[in-house]
């Protein structure tokens, strides 16, 4: 028996909206500790990893680990039927479920929707992601980072991110010209302005902006985003989800010649 009830169902809707352009089908692994999901994009350039802890759910029960193979497109269609204020419950009684039940309830419990989504059997391609001690970590407004990526992607497809003790520089070079945006440490009390740099080792890495713009669809999940980098390592972009878990994106760097 597996049942997970999320008080703020809108969070689940936002997560699916944030990843639906990147991955087509995913395995959600349910265990006693919560839900986890990991999937690569079709080009194997990026990886998304979701972890939702059981104690972030209103109700959570998972008698034994199960894997739920879902088409993101079909999941999206079902979630469109959930209101932003609804609670969302996922449920199945079977050990090898062929479908997953969804219940959407409005606040007054006066409207209850029930859907059953057919499951897919997907071979698990899960990669081992070592816990990395990143040498450059940037915490900043997710809206600001999303804006920087959007603006720079009109000049070039790739952005070079260079960190130093007191600032991070986003540089682009394209046919029309070049540009850079430098953001300094800023302990402002205004969320949108605050920038927190922890630079043990400066890095200079180049990434495809198309992927960063896709990752930034998660901006509605958290007002802050963290960029985690080490030389010769994929960038890890993390959106923490209050009291529930985190949505992480990994992006392989461009190999600068």
């Amino acid at each position: 028996m597996f049942e997970a009830k999320l008080q703020q169902g809108v969070i689940f809707k936002k997560i699916v909206d944030a990843i639906k352009d990147l991955v087509k089908s995913v395995n959600i692994d349910a265990s006693t500790s919560g839900l986890s999901m990991q999937a690569m994009d079709s080009a194997h350039v990026a990886l998304v990893s979701l972890k939702l802890n059981e104690n972030g759910f209103k109700d959570y029960r998972c008698d034994r680990p199960i894997t739920l193979g879902l088409s993101i497109e079909n999941l999206s269609k079902i979630l469109k039927c959930a209101g932003n204020d609804d609670t969302i419950t996922l449920q199945t009684d079977e050990e090898e479920p062929s479908s997953l039940k969804f219940f959407f309830e409005n606040q007054q419990a006066s409207k209850i929707s029930e859907f059953s989504l057919n499951l897919m059997s997907l071979d698990s391609e899960s990669l081992g992601i070592p816990d990395t001690d990143y040498s450059s970590v940037i915490q900043m407004s997710s809206a600001e980072f999303s804006r920087i990526c959007k603006e720079l992607s009109s000049i070039s497809e790739t952005v070079e991110i260079e960190t130093s003790k007191e600032s991070v520089k986003f540089s682009v070079q394209g046919d029309i010209g070049a540009g850079s945006i430098t953001v300094k440490n800023n302990q402002s009390d205004k969320d949108v302005d605050r920038v927190d740099l922890q630079i043990d080792q400066p890095v200079k890495l180049t990434f495809a902006l198309r992927y960063l713009n896709m990752f930034n669809k998660a901006v509605s999940l958290s007002s802050t985003v963290s960029l985690n980098m080490s030389e010769e390592n994929p960038l890890m972009v993390e959106y923490k989800i209050d009291d529930l878990g985190s949505l992480r994106f990994y992006l392989a760097p461009k190999i600068s010649d």
Binding site: L47, E125, A252, D257
Partner: peptide, 14 residues
């Protein structure tokens, strides 16, 4: 031109 690297170069199959 910069070549795009692949994520499964960095992280191995479990």
């Amino acid at each position: 031109l910069t070549e795009q690297d692949y994520i499964n170069i960095f992280y191995k199959q479990d």
